[in-house]
Nucleic acid binder design. Structure first.
Lengths: 149, 149
DNA sequence: CTAATTTTAATTGTGCACAATTAAATAGTA
DNA sequence: TACTATTTAATTGTGCACAATTAAAATTAG
C-alpha cells in the first residue's frame, strides 16, 4: 500500500474496529433497556453470572478495566440492587462484588439477548468464530506490547 | 453452541470487539503524545487531511459521531490551534471545520504513525485486509438495523 | 407569501474510560 | 521487630459517547 493511502480513514483497521464496536454496542441498547443497564454493566453481570463473587481486581482482569472505571460503575449497579459490594474478611484490601437476588434473576431475562443480537448480524457461525479468533489474537498482542510502555 | 455457553464472556464476539478496540487505542497513545492529541482527535485530523473544510455533519457521517460528541471535541482542537470553525456563508446552519497551518503541518509528523502501529500487530497484510472487510460488513449491517429503531 | 416542516449545531445530563495520585492493608526483609 | 515495598481500591481530573432537547436557519407546502 502507498504511504499516502495508509493515512486514509478508509484504510485504517483501527477505525473499522472503533466504529464497529460503537455501532454494535448501540444494537444492545434496546435489548438491555428492559433490564435498565448499559452494555458495560451487562459485561459485569456476564462475568458474575459465571463466578460470584469476584474482587474488583478480578473483575478488572476479565473485562480489561481498572478501578477508576469499575468503582463508580459498581456503585451505580449497587444502587440498582443488581450487586452488592463488601470488603473481604481475609484481606481487607479486596472489595468483593457479588450478585444480589435481583442480579441473579436478571440472568433469565437476559438469556435471550445473545440470540437476539446474533439475529442482527448477517454472518454465519464460521465467520463469527473466525473473527473472534482474529480479534483475540490482536487483543493479546496489543496487551503484550502495551504493558511495557 | 449450547444456550449457556452463549452467555459466557469468552464466547461473545462483541466483548472481543470492545476489549480489542480499547487495547488498540491504548497503543496509539504514545504515538499521538508528540502531537498532543487523543485518538478521536486523530480521526478528525485524518478526515480533514483528506478533505478540508468539512461541515460538522459531514465529519459526523465519516466518523459515525454526532454533534454532541463533536462540538466539544472540536472546540478543544480549536483551542489547540489545530483547526478553525466558522459558519458557512451560503447556509448559516452549517459550521465548517478547516485545518489551520498547524493542523496541516501535523500531517507530516503523523505520517509514520500507521506503520509504527502496524509494527505492533503480528498479522500479515492479508489477515488485516480480511479483518477489515469483515468488520466493515458488520458495521454496515449494524447501521442498517440500528437506524430504524 | 406565510406557516409548517426539516435540517443543522449546540446544549444538557448521564455514563463510561483511563492516567495519575492517594490511602489503607498486607507481605517481605534486614 | 520495625521498616520497606507491594498490592488493592478509591479518588481526581480530563475527554469521549450518546440520548434528548433546544434554537436558529432553510426548505417546503398551502
Amino acid at each position: 500500500m502507498m504511504a499516502e493511502d495508509k493515512m486514509k480513514l478508509e484504510n485504517q483497521i483501527c477505525f473499522s474496529l472503533y466504529a464497529t464496536t460503537r455501532e454494535m454496542t448501540k444494537l444492545y441498547r434496546p435489548l438491555l433497556a428492559d433490564l435498565n443497564i448499559t452494555y458495560p454493566q451487562y459485561l459485569v453481570l456476564l462475568a458474575l453470572w459465571e463466578t460470584s463473587p469476584l474482587s474488583v481486581k478480578e473483575l478488572g482482569e476479565r473485562l480489561y478495566l481498572d478501578s477508576g472505571t469499575l468503582t463508580p460503575m459498581l456503585k451505580r449497579m449497587e444502587k440498582e440492587n443488581l450487586i452488592e459490594r463488601y470488603r473481604s474478611k481475609e484481606d481487607e484490601r479486596r472489595v468483593l462484588v457479588g450478585l444480589t437476588e435481583e442480579g441473579r434473576k436478571a440472568e433469565e431475562k437476559a438469556a435471550c439477548i445473545p440470540d437476539l443480537l446474533l439475529d442482527n448480524i448477517d454472518m454465519n457461525e464460521e465467520e463469527i468464530l473466525n473473527l473472534k479468533h482474529t480479534l483475540n489474537r490482536m487483543l493479546e498482542g496489543a496487551r503484550q506490547k502495551g504493558e511495557h510502555q
